[in-house]
């Protein structure tokens, strides 16, 4: 089947099997390998991307379901050489270690902060509870999101 979609502002077309998972289109066909795969059961969130601004787990959608839509992956966060405040926050607060869950954490947090610009710590913990991290113990991820929230509030 033919799919057409826009990823990080760029138009892509591909001829895919109807059963092709969106994450495999992104990674294997379009070679945007920042989006990762960590489980088979929609639990880990390493594959999280934005579909029309909503955080979705791209291992649980077919590529054809994204046809005609706008996607953003981790590769799209940096704009004109300027990092997204969340990317800055994760570096500043040591919010990552092995880096494998990081793209998914970032994309979940981007969508979350857009709807909840002034979150409490509990709000953040609930928001990222669909994304598993085995390295950080989440403390510094929470701080990274708070760091970004403050920067976004400050008009950064």
């Amino acid at each position: 089947m033919q799919v057409q979609l826009t990823i990080n502002g760029e138009k892509h077309e591909a001829d895919v099997e109807p059963r092709l998972l969106l994450v495999h289109l992104i990674r294997d066909v379009l070679r945007l390998t920042g989006t990762h795969i960590g489980c088979d059961t929609t639990h880990c969130g390493a594959c999280t991307v934005l579909l029309e601004g909503r955080a979705v787990k791209s291992c649980t959608l077919f590529a054809v379901q994204a046809s005609g839509k706008q996607l953003m992956t981790v590769e799209g966060l940096e704009q004109d050489g300027k990092l997204h405040p969340l990317q800055e926050g994760f570096m500043a607060e040591h919010g990552l270690q092995c880096g494998y869950c990081t793209p998914g954490m970032l994309m979940t947090s981007v969508a979350f902060l857009e709807k909840h610009p002034k979150p409490s710590e509990d709000d953040i913990r609930r928001a990222i509870s669909g994304n598993l991290c085995r390295c950080t113990g989440y403390v510094n991820i929470v701080k990274a999101v708070q760091h970004a929230a403050a920067a976004l509030q400050g008009g950064a």
């Binding site: 070679r31 390998t33 920042g34 992956t73 590769e75 570096m91 990552l96 970032l106």
Partner: peptide, 21 residues
Amino acid sequence: LKRKEDPRFIRGRGTYVDDVQ
């Protein structure tokens, strides 16, 4: 010190095994 590893990881530019094609 801020980590030297992070600039590639926060951009999704790490290279994990399954990224090699």
